[in-house]
Protein backbone atom coordinates (compact mmCIF):
# COMPACT_ATOMS: atom_id res chain seq x y z
CA UNK A 1 0.00 0.00 0.00
CA UNK A 2 2.72 2.44 1.01
CA UNK A 3 4.78 1.52 -2.03
CA UNK A 4 1.80 2.10 -4.29
CA UNK A 5 1.16 5.53 -2.84
CA UNK A 6 4.80 6.56 -3.00
CA UNK A 7 4.97 5.45 -6.62
CA UNK A 8 1.94 7.52 -7.51
CA UNK A 9 3.43 10.50 -5.69
CA UNK A 10 6.80 10.01 -7.38
CA UNK A 11 5.19 9.79 -10.80
CA UNK A 12 3.24 12.93 -10.09
CA UNK A 13 6.36 14.73 -8.94
CA UNK A 14 8.29 13.69 -12.04
CA UNK A 15 5.51 15.11 -14.22
CA UNK A 16 5.76 18.40 -12.33
CA UNK A 17 9.53 18.46 -12.84
CA UNK A 18 9.26 17.82 -16.57
CA UNK A 19 6.51 20.44 -16.84
CA UNK A 20 8.91 22.92 -15.28
CA UNK A 21 11.55 22.14 -17.90
CA UNK A 22 9.17 22.59 -20.82
CA UNK A 23 7.88 25.81 -19.29
CA UNK A 24 11.43 27.12 -19.18
CA UNK A 25 11.87 26.27 -22.85
CA UNK A 26 8.55 27.92 -23.66
CA UNK A 27 10.00 31.24 -22.58
CA UNK A 28 13.46 30.92 -24.11
CA UNK A 29 14.00 32.82 -27.32
CA UNK A 30 13.49 30.77 -30.46
CA UNK A 31 16.66 29.98 -32.36
CA UNK A 32 14.92 30.24 -35.73
CA UNK A 33 16.29 32.89 -38.08
CA UNK A 34 13.47 34.35 -40.17
CA UNK A 35 15.47 34.18 -43.36
CA UNK A 36 14.37 36.84 -45.81
CA UNK A 37 13.90 39.38 -43.04
CA UNK A 38 16.94 38.53 -40.96
CA UNK A 39 20.09 36.82 -42.07
CA UNK A 40 22.74 34.96 -40.19
CA UNK A 41 26.24 36.38 -40.11
CA UNK A 42 28.37 34.32 -42.44
CA UNK A 43 31.68 32.96 -41.25
CA UNK A 44 34.45 35.26 -42.47
CA UNK A 45 35.78 32.68 -44.87
CA UNK A 46 32.45 31.35 -46.13
CA UNK A 47 32.86 30.35 -49.77
CA UNK A 48 30.17 31.99 -51.86
CA UNK A 49 29.87 33.35 -55.38
CA UNK A 50 33.03 34.22 -57.31
CA UNK A 51 34.09 37.73 -58.20
CA UNK A 52 36.96 38.95 -60.30
CA UNK A 53 38.73 41.54 -58.18
CA UNK A 54 39.84 44.90 -59.53
CA UNK A 55 43.00 46.82 -58.82
CA UNK A 56 42.48 49.85 -56.58
CA UNK A 57 44.79 52.14 -58.55
CA UNK A 58 43.99 51.31 -62.14
CA UNK A 59 40.38 50.21 -61.54
CA UNK A 60 41.12 47.44 -63.96
CA UNK A 61 40.75 43.70 -63.55
CA UNK A 62 43.67 42.06 -61.81
CA UNK A 63 43.19 38.94 -63.88
CA UNK A 64 45.89 38.26 -66.47
CA UNK A 65 44.11 35.37 -68.14
CA UNK A 66 46.85 32.92 -67.16
CA UNK A 67 44.29 30.06 -67.26
CA UNK A 68 45.48 28.63 -63.91
CA UNK A 69 42.01 28.68 -62.38
CA UNK A 70 40.42 27.06 -65.39
CA UNK A 71 43.00 24.32 -65.37
CA UNK A 72 42.84 23.52 -61.68
CA UNK A 73 39.04 23.57 -61.54
CA UNK A 74 37.99 19.96 -60.80
CA UNK A 75 34.60 20.38 -62.45
CA UNK A 76 35.71 22.60 -65.36
CA UNK A 77 33.31 25.39 -64.62
CA UNK A 78 35.65 28.25 -65.60
CA UNK A 79 36.05 29.22 -69.23
CA UNK A 80 38.19 32.14 -70.36
CA UNK A 81 40.21 33.51 -73.20
CA UNK A 82 42.87 36.21 -72.93
CA UNK A 83 44.16 38.84 -75.28
CA UNK A 84 47.26 41.03 -75.24
CA UNK A 85 50.87 40.32 -74.38
CA UNK A 86 52.90 40.39 -71.16
CA UNK A 87 51.67 42.74 -68.45
CA UNK A 88 48.90 44.06 -70.66
CA UNK A 89 47.30 40.64 -71.03
CA UNK A 90 43.67 40.69 -69.88
CA UNK A 91 40.80 38.25 -70.33
CA UNK A 92 38.71 38.77 -73.47
CA UNK A 93 35.85 36.84 -71.99
CA UNK A 94 35.56 35.01 -68.69
CA UNK A 95 32.66 32.74 -67.78
CA UNK A 96 32.00 30.82 -64.58
CA UNK A 97 29.20 28.29 -64.69
CA UNK A 98 27.88 28.18 -61.11
CA UNK A 99 25.66 25.23 -61.95
CA UNK A 100 28.84 23.20 -61.88
CA UNK A 101 30.89 24.98 -59.22
CA UNK A 102 31.49 22.86 -56.12
CA UNK A 103 32.88 25.70 -53.99
CA UNK A 104 36.30 24.05 -53.48
CA UNK A 105 38.15 27.40 -53.56
CA UNK A 106 41.00 25.89 -55.60
CA UNK A 107 40.75 28.61 -58.25
CA UNK A 108 41.22 31.26 -55.58
CA UNK A 109 44.16 29.52 -53.99
CA UNK A 110 45.95 28.94 -57.25
CA UNK A 111 45.54 32.47 -58.60
CA UNK A 112 48.94 34.18 -58.56
CA UNK A 113 47.52 37.69 -58.62
CA UNK A 114 44.68 37.41 -56.16
CA UNK A 115 42.39 38.20 -59.05
CA UNK A 116 39.53 35.87 -58.18
CA UNK A 117 37.80 35.62 -54.81
CA UNK A 118 35.03 33.60 -53.24
CA UNK A 119 34.79 35.58 -49.98
CA UNK A 120 31.98 37.74 -51.19
CA UNK A 121 28.99 36.83 -49.06
CA UNK A 122 26.79 36.59 -52.15
CA UNK A 123 24.90 33.36 -51.64
CA UNK A 124 21.40 34.17 -52.88
CA UNK A 125 21.97 32.74 -56.33
CA UNK A 126 18.52 31.34 -57.04
CA UNK A 127 17.29 31.61 -60.60
CA UNK A 128 14.53 30.29 -62.83
CA UNK A 129 16.73 29.02 -65.61
CA UNK A 130 20.13 27.41 -65.62
CA UNK A 131 21.61 30.29 -67.56
CA UNK A 132 20.86 32.54 -64.58
CA UNK A 133 23.76 30.84 -62.85
CA UNK A 134 26.25 31.34 -65.66
CA UNK A 135 28.19 34.52 -64.91
CA UNK A 136 30.07 36.40 -67.57
CA UNK A 137 32.89 38.83 -67.02
CA UNK A 138 30.66 41.83 -66.53
CA UNK A 139 28.62 40.10 -63.84
CA UNK A 140 31.75 38.85 -62.16
CA UNK A 141 33.30 42.24 -61.53
CA UNK A 142 30.19 44.43 -61.39
CA UNK A 143 30.32 44.68 -57.58
CA UNK A 144 33.85 46.09 -57.72
CA UNK A 145 35.57 43.86 -55.20
CA UNK A 146 39.20 44.54 -54.33
CA UNK A 147 41.64 41.78 -53.36
CA UNK A 148 41.18 41.08 -49.67
CA UNK A 149 43.31 40.03 -46.76
CA UNK A 150 41.10 37.00 -46.55
CA UNK A 151 42.77 35.50 -49.57
CA UNK A 152 45.05 32.85 -48.10
CA UNK A 153 48.10 33.13 -50.32
CA UNK A 154 48.67 36.34 -52.13
CA UNK A 155 51.73 37.65 -53.97
CA UNK A 156 53.80 40.31 -52.26
CA UNK A 157 52.46 43.71 -53.13
CA UNK A 158 48.86 42.73 -53.59
CA UNK A 159 48.33 41.88 -49.93
CA UNK A 160 50.39 44.83 -48.70
CA UNK A 161 48.32 47.44 -50.44
CA UNK A 162 45.68 49.55 -48.75
CA UNK A 163 42.51 48.31 -50.51
CA UNK A 164 42.34 45.34 -48.19
CA UNK A 165 40.26 47.22 -45.65
CA UNK A 166 37.89 48.51 -48.31
CA UNK A 167 37.34 44.99 -49.54
CA UNK A 168 36.79 43.66 -46.05
CA UNK A 169 34.29 46.39 -45.28
CA UNK A 170 32.42 45.65 -48.45
CA UNK A 171 32.28 42.01 -47.55
CA UNK A 172 30.71 42.59 -44.15
CA UNK A 173 28.08 44.88 -45.54
CA UNK A 174 27.09 42.10 -47.92
CA UNK A 175 26.40 39.78 -45.04
Amino acid sequence: MWRYLSEVARGFWSIILSLRITLRYLFTRAVTVQYPEEKRLLPTRALTRHVLTIDLDSKDLKCTACDMCARICPVNCIYLEGEGKGKARRPKWFIIDHNLCMYCNLCVEVCPFDAISMYTGMYELGGFTRTNLVYDMQALHAEGFYPTIMTPRSPAGAAGKAPTTAGAGKQESKV
Binding site: T22, Y25, L26, F27, T28, A30, V31, T32, Q34
Partner: peptide, 13 residues
Amino acid sequence: KISAHIQVRFGPM
Protein backbone atom coordinates in the same frame (compact mmCIF):
# COMPACT_ATOMS: atom_id res chain seq x y z
CA LYS B 1 2.57 28.38 -31.21
CA ILE B 2 3.02 26.70 -27.82
CA SER B 3 4.46 23.54 -29.31
CA ALA B 4 6.83 25.60 -31.42
CA HIS B 5 8.04 27.73 -28.54
CA ILE B 6 8.52 24.71 -26.30
CA GLN B 7 10.73 23.34 -29.08
CA VAL B 8 12.52 26.74 -29.28
CA ARG B 9 11.17 27.70 -32.70
CA PHE B 10 8.50 30.15 -33.87
CA GLY B 11 5.69 28.13 -35.42
CA PRO B 12 3.42 29.80 -37.97
CA MET B 13 4.77 33.28 -38.71
